[in-house]
């Protein structure tokens, strides 16, 4: 029952600083390919900082620096062209953020930005991406309607379709369901499981139960006394949720933390 997949992203001795403040200290993780890896931990432990490191989004913030290495399939992320990196590593955010454009144009945005102009090809990409995001049947007759006219859950699936349209290999998700109602949340979770067949997914969630439901592997982060985030334990979710190795993990997953 334990799937053995090769690692897609390797994080080695990675530390991250906002100015003098060390937000992440000495993180080592191999993220398995075509699986869901969940990052859990208390607020402020660096989960989102860690996630944004994987597509180098943190570089947009002034006065940050890093130590250590991040690799995707043995190539350093820091040696990669950032546009190419973000094509290969897509991202979905906490609040659904469709562009104020039609459903069609939202999904076609990325492919167009990468130079695709052929209407037939774009049509195909839009349909395929919406199908993969399990939204096609709900919107196929309204592709020219504004993306903002959709419900919250549909908007989030539209954002996932938009991320899929540039054919990424990795999808980062930062609390993708926290702004959604329980039914829309379960629907997103179902979708995440389906996507894991073809994509490597890293999801940050403050909802520990969600991590249990959707992920194959779980990384538990916590904070040192000086508030630097660190990795406490990383392992198969089935193990983290039934017999974690560290007492701190046990305390967190059983709700006895802090």
């Amino acid at each position: 029952m334990e799937p053995k997949n090769r690692s897609k992203i390797q994080i080695k001795k990675y530390s991250f600083y906002y100015g003098d403040f060390e937000a992440l200290r000495n993180i080592n993780i191999d993220i398995p390919e075509n699986q869901v890896t969940a990052i859990i931990g208390p607020s402020g432990c660096g989960k989102s900082t860690f996630l944004r490191s994987i597509n180098r989004m943190n570089e947009l913030i002034p006065d940050v620096h890093t130590k250590g290495e991040l690799f995707m399939e043995d190539m350093s992320l820091f040696d990669m062209d950032v546009v190419n990196l973000r094509k290969r590593v897509g991202m979905v955010f906490q609040r659904p953020n469709p562009f104020p454009k039609t459903i069609y144009d939202n999904v076609a945005y990325g492919p167009r930005a990468h130079g695709i102009r052929d209407r037939g090809i774009l049509d195909e990409i839009v349909e395929q991406s919406l199908r993969s995001a399990v939204l096609w049947n709900e919107v196929k007759d309204h592709l020219q309607k504004s993306g903002l006219a959709l419900s919250g859950g549909q908007q989030q699936r539209l954002c996932i379709a938009r991320a899929l349209a540039v054919e990424p290999e990795v999808i980062l998700m930062d609390e993708p369901a926290s702004a959604l109602d329980p039914i829309a949340t379960l629907r997103i979770e179902e979708l995440i499981r389906e996507l894991a067949v073809n994509y490597t997914i890293v999801i940050v969630t403050h909802n520990m139960h969600q991590a249990g439901r959707v992920s194959d592997h779980t990384a538990f982060f916590s904070m040192h006394k000086d508030r630097a985030g660190y990795l406490v334990e990383f392992g198969p979710t089935r193990q983290i949720f039934t017999r974690p190795e560290k007492q701190l993990t046990e305390d967190y997953v059983t709700g006895r933390f802090g």
């Binding site: 029952m1 139960h209 249990g212 439901r213 979710t237 089935r238 949720f241 039934t242």
Partner: peptide, 12 residues
Amino acid sequence: ELDCLITIATQQ
């Protein structure tokens, strides 16, 4: 038994 417990723990 272990698989059952894992399902209870992860799937609520």
